[in-house]
Design a protein around this nucleic acid. Structure first.
Lengths: 126, 126
DNA sequence: CTCGGTACTTACCAAAAGGTAAGTACCCCA
DNA sequence: TGGGGTACTTACCTTTTGGTAAGTACCGAG
């Protein structure tokens, strides 16, 4: 123990799932790996604008410990490390899809509120 | 502004949704309200073992600002405040269902690993 | 022979999240 | 008259999370 089960015991499944995806970049990492299948460290870094190397390795290690992805090191110079989703990671990504759809809706709602405000400011007289 | 849209801009929908449910008790609050329809402050407190009053009010206010729930105050003595999900909150809860199922699976996997370890320790000789 | 690229690790620091304990104001019950 | 219930707020503190910057070790290009 002392590795994968960081928190818990969990009250419900939502708890257990949120524990695994909470982390500033984990959702994006999952998405990148699902999109591209296999990605190297530097490719992920470039795909996640603003991530620091420290956070990226930290998140990758935690997700590996949680069984979401596999890390394959090629004994080459320069070094080459490839990350890809496990079966469980892919299932998690699929389970996140409806949540993503809800989020897209929320963004849309937010933007249309902004537009209403802008319109109200831009058209002070009918 | 300065109220509802706390973070962002969001890179994708997952981002926007996770922003809204990250918080130690938010998943459970959503689940409690979905189960019971309407809940008072003290009922929620009792339903979330270990939550502090401060965190509960804080989370409830944020979720109200995010349009997930409505807060109805009855002008009575002693005071009575009732919380219930909005349409968006209920939709979010529905979108969380597959994630919850994945989490249940994860808990089951974890437990069976523990059982394997216990069995291995309990049966040192075949 | 220095720069950039590979994939990290480490030390230090700032911000955010969360917990504890107390105070508020009013009521009912014993 | 004292204790418990209603729904909070506030001040203070600790823990967690994330960011910055530097160091490591090796290689090829210019």
């Amino acid at each position: 123990m002392a590795k994968a089960p960081r928190n818990g015991p969990y009250i419900c499944g939502i708890d257990a799932a949120l524990d695994v995806v909470s982390g500033k970049w984990k959702g994006l990492i999952l998405w990148e790996l699902d999109e591209h299948g296999v990605r190297r460290f530097a490719e992920l870094r470039r795909g996640l604008p603003g991530v620091s190397e420290k956070m990226l390795t930290q998140h990758l290690r935690e997700m590996e410990a949680d069984g979401l992805l596999t890390r394959r090191v090629h004994a080459e110079v320069p070094p080459r490390v490839e990350y890809s989703l496990t079966e469980h990671g892919a299932a998690l990504n699929a389970a996140l899809a409806p949540l993503g759809a809800w989020g897209v809706d929320r963004i849309r709602r937010e933007r249309s509120e902004l537009v209403e405000h802008r319109d109200a400011a831009a058209l002070p007289r009918p």
